[in-house]
Amino acid sequence: MSDERKAPAAEYVRRLDAGHLAYQECRDCGHRFHYPRISCPSCSSRAVEFRDSRGLGTVYARTVVHSRNEPPYNVVLVDLDEGFRIMSRVDGVANDAVQIGLRVRLKGIEPGRDGVMPAPVFQPAEAR
């Protein structure tokens, strides 16, 4: 079977497990997107292929969830430089410093568990 016939989510998770945040690019119209699909949501072409992101992006929107049972944690939407957007979290910095426009880079992939997908997590771009 050709690469395109693999289950999209399985290939995405395989790449996450290898430490990469993947997106798909359409060979016909050039559209780049996330989450993994069998066809391009811009032009319907099935000629879509996986690429690994460089992991650099900018915070597009942010919130901090407050709960009675645990410390507050941030939830962000990140615009990756390749042109796709994902939900994530920014670690290694105070929640108040996680603001829109913050440049971030991929910190790593948190393993999935109990049927929850592995999670690409970010940190401020200037962090070492």
């Binding site: 989510a9 969830v65 994902i86 939900m87 948190e110 997908m117 592995p118």
Partner: peptide, 9 residues
């Protein structure tokens, strides 16, 4: 599935 790990309320 792609948002669940980050636990938005």
């Amino acid at each position: 599935a792609y948002e669940e790990p980050f636990r938005p309320r």
